[in-house]
Design a protein around this nucleic acid. Structure first.
Lengths: 219, 219
DNA sequence: GTCTATATGCGGATAGAC
DNA sequence: GTCTATCCGCATATAGAC
């Protein structure tokens, strides 16, 4: 069946790319794991890069939509009191982990997500970023309210830190599990992550010494 | 000159791998950029993988030594009062940025570092982690003191979050600069990062509801 | 839609002259 | 130590039979 082939390719690609990374995963690997013919990838997707785009779109779009949906919900509920920092952060961080728990702790997807954030080349980052842009902007606006002491010169950076701790955790969480005795579930980790991010975002602003001098060096 | 060739290869490899990633960077790319012969990489380093190891070692060892040195210093100074959270976090986060500023804001190295943390395959992670292990352990012990409310089940995770925000920032910081009006220097970013990490590490522990129920959803 | 066979090029590595 | 020439395998992609 045709659509079955497409799905099997997407699943296998997601798995393998999450495992080994995009450049190190060959179409031979993918088609073998999916138990389909080598040529079918090009037939169904056009190219290896287009396959990657399809793999990402299948997961990222629902996640970003879910983020916006959750944000809408809490903002509606909160009325003009404004949503709490905790709720906003949770709305941002939980969707990737939600998808996760639906599958019974298949960590591959989290690692793929982690890789997406950091592995791709510069052009691809632009594409990814442009899709992410809307989400980023809306959460920036939402966060501004419970964090009035932050400005345009530090709120975006702190959001970047939050995304970084999330992405890194998705990518390394599995290795981490093995090192610790750790019976932590992804849900436990998510809760820790939310606590960490809330506190980090709300941290007092470091006293600006307004650039005493470019810390320079000869050579 | 021989040693000059080695250095040129290391420099070019660092640059290109930071740019495009390890698997996507060919030895032909490297030797062309370094203006040396293709065969010289194998002559001097043995293999492409060994070259990567050399590239990393050249930078990581000084950074990790510097981290431990700074930790020693602040612990000596602080006596039995114990070092402050801020000083410990700073000792951990600043060395990569220090190396950086010595070179006059060549972001390549920071991006390479970011990639190391996220791009490599599982075997390589093990190697990297084993070198990092000592540093991680010593800082975990040091952090335990100003953070007595944390335990073995959450301190390591929070340290992972800290490393994640750092790695991600190193990897994406450059793109970030471009997006914002941002006249932020790496030093500004470092200060923001330290503030974020301190607060995140010190965050109150989320009330353990001992797994009320998997946050569920129907599809 | 699926498959085989193949085109075409790039990858890491090395033999051997200088 | 450096270079050329080359081995050899794997990569993506596609032509064309079924």
């Amino acid at each position: 069946m045709a659509s079955d082939t497409k799905r099997r390719i997407l699943d296998a690609a997601e798995q393998l790319i999450g495992d080994k990374g995009f450049p190190s995963t060959s179409m031979r690997d993918i088609t073998k794991a999916a138990n389909v013919n080598l040529a079918s990838v090009n037939y169904h997707f056009g190219s290896k890069e287009a396959l990657l785009a399809a793999v990402l779109a299948r997961r990222l779009q629902p996640i970003n939509e879910r983020r916006l949906q959750l944000l809408d919900e809490i903002e509606t509920q909160a009325d003009d009191r404004g949503a709490t920092l905790y709720d906003i952060v949770r709305a941002f961080l939980s969707p990737p982990f939600e998808q996760q728990t639906q599958w019974g702790y298949n960590e591959t997807f989290l690692r793929l997500l982690g890789r997406i954030h950091s592995e791709t080349n510069e052009e691809f980052r632009q594409v990814f970023m442009s899709e992410f842009e809307l989400v980023f902007q809306r959460f920036a606006v939402a966060l501004q309210r419970p964090l009035p002491h932050l400005t345009n010169s530090n709120l975006p950076w702190r959001m970047l830190f939050m995304v970084g701790s999330m992405a890194f955790t998705m990518s390394w969480g599995q290795s981490m599990m093995l090192r610790e005795d750790s019976s932590a579930t992804p849900d436990d980790v998510l809760n820790e992550l939310i606590a960490f991010a809330c506190a980090g975002l709300a941290a007092p602003v470091h006293q600006e010494i307004s650039h005493p001098q470019q810390l320079q060096e000869t050579q």
